[in-house]
Amino acid sequence: MTNSIEVKNLVKKFGKFTAVDNISFNVSKGEVFGFLGPNGAGKTTTIRMLCGLMDPTAGEGLVGGYSISRQGEEIKQNIGYMSQKFSLYEDLTVGENIDFYQGIYQTPKEGRRSKKEEIIERSELFGKENELTANLAGSVKQHLALGCALVHEPKIVFLDEPTAGVDPLSRHKFWGVIKDLSRLGITTLVTTHYMDEAERCDRIALINDGIIIAIGSPAELKSSSMKGLLFEIECSNVMAGLEVIKNLPVVIDVTLYGLFLHAVVNKMEDLDQIKSALSQKGIEVKRAEKIVPSLEDVFVFLVEKENRDKIRSGR
């Protein structure tokens, strides 16, 4: 078995609302697979279905070779799961939290002491074993929660927005841990809405409104999903510039990107048209250069394309 996770035509509906709309993807062993999308895109719902916490409305999924609709309890033996809420008991000490999770996962008694020390060390909680969890900093809690979710050394790990509300340095460290897991052959499925985190995944699925709009490695997505060239334009009045560029037929897409405009066109020469259109309206172009699209560009481009397609097809 090379795929740790296989998902085929998975659907989840809540009443009339379709949270996950017919998604399919595979995650191979040892891969760090990212789910990138805005809040409400269906990331958490998908993870919950894969962990056996929710029954799918339709479709099938295999996690570690077990069916998500029929073998939920087998899956639970073999996965680690960490939700955005961290799942620690605040009124218990660090040591007690670890003891508890070792207990309910029935890890071998001999290994418990050393595993506990390992978790404490990794969470940089040395000497704080008897500290109440409520008194810990958010980033430390996050490491501890991950340690608790992994007490039974699962081969597949689900992380649902593990870095929500954690400072950038801690986020960076946390991703170091995820990479370490990957080197040990552990498969990780992680959801995020941070672009920089998505860049660190082996592969990502872009998800919006319950639909996977693109899937591939960050490099692949950047090079292939965006047809055309991306220019970053700095001009004297971005808002007016946006209006002008938007209406040019050669421009496939244009978005506001901080203080700059990002415009997608088909060929190099199209940039001249943009420049002349802007200067006609009295907008001064300070800088215009071809750039490598970031994941955010790709994401915005694909989402807008999807929306345009929807409107066009009358959906």
Partner: peptide, 12 residues
């Protein structure tokens, strides 16, 4: 508290 998810996802 949000700990229910961890319990439910465990083999308990």
């Amino acid at each position: 508290q949000g700990t229910m998810e961890a319990l439910v996802v465990s083999p308990i």
